[in-house]
Write a protein that binds this DNA or RNA. Sequence first.
DNA 1: ATGACTTATGGCACACTGTGACAGAAAGGT
DNA 2: ACCTTTCTGTCACAGTGTGCCATAAGTCAT
Lengths: 202, 202
Amino acid sequence: MGLRERKKEKTRLAILDAALDLFLEQGYESTTVEQIAGAVEISPRTFFRYFNSKDHLALWHHDHGEEIMLETLASRPEDESSFTSLMHAMRAVVGDLEGSTGEDRARFLKLRRLMEDHPRLVGMSVARGAATERRLIEVIAARRGVDPDEDMLTPLIVAFAACTLRVGFECPRRDSGLPEITQRMAETIELAERSLRPGWDR
Amino acid sequence: MGLRERKKEKTRLAILDAALDLFLEQGYESTTVEQIAGAVEISPRTFFRYFNSKDHLALWHHDHGEEIMLETLASRPEDESSFTSLMHAMRAVVGDLEGSTGEDRARFLKLRRLMEDHPRLVGMSVARGAATERRLIEVIAARRGVDPDEDMLTPLIVAFAACTLRVGFECPRRDSGLPEITQRMAETIELAERSLRPGWDR
DNA sequence: ATGACTTATGGCACACTGTGACAGAAAGGT
DNA sequence: ACCTTTCTGTCACAGTGTGCCATAAGTCAT
């Protein structure tokens, strides 16, 4: 990886960190792109080259999470039932979080505190999740050998899986640490597995 | 109801109808508030007095749906299990749709076609649903006699119910008529009920 | 190093959404 | 008719996001 790309990644993280701190300090709405750009000494125009919108700052982790889920899904045995595979994909996301560096954990926790204060951001996060769901539906439909436009069970399987992860993410209390959060997420996943009738995702 | 309120309601619907037609004709993003306002001969400023934002146009049905769900929920017997009550609430929304006037049905179908063309609107719709979920969680937690901040099952029950309705809504194909759509929604609800282990929502 | 080539950046102009403030118009009640 | 309340349009403005172009910085030869 060349100097250029490393520098870009550094700038991207600098923007993100500056933005998160400003958001937590003075609120999301009342922080302008101009301020964020100023804090990392770039022009507002350049900001929009790193993040398509101000909102995308709050969705940073989703891209990574989606990638992990798709990778995990691809690595699961063909004959495993769909929901079980999806739950493994969800666990992989939690596992990745647990194994991440201190900086990344800090970003995650800041983001989570931010969401608690700003329901609008939760909404955007959920909306981003809907895009992921569409991709997962494609994959699962292919695995199950059904037409994604005809079958009704596939979207339901994916939706149940996706909202399980979401509930696990949103559920823990405000001042939770990361171990407590991942613990809760894992528990929620188990709870979902126990709640469904065996073989429902045949 | 006075003349004033009737006129307001008429204007509100006129704006909505003009907007939906423009959206379907030339796309959501490329339709400006100015155009919508022009089509119903009001000032852009007045538009924002009827709808808080352009986006709210696409969320018009959610407020009504949420109301129906909360009402239905309140009317269900205390000892009915949570998920069952929620499924009745979802069915009430479908039932209301079936019993609505021709104009309302037309709006619903236009809205649905719009969503199919614009994933961003689906995202917003999902985000709006997240707000409804929070309210439902309060109600269900009270019914189950648990602390909504501590219990993990309540959010999961509500999330499963909410995404069942959503899947039912999104699932039908592009050119479906209303009976086909409500049929699919009802089927999805039954599918969800069959998929869950009896007593999981104790 | 010097050059040529590619990519990132900043500045500018611009369109669009959304809001506050104020003045005038319309509707309501008496 | 009058006064009060509510709705409306106009203006000014802040903020997000994009296209365009000139310039600066990184990259890769020779």
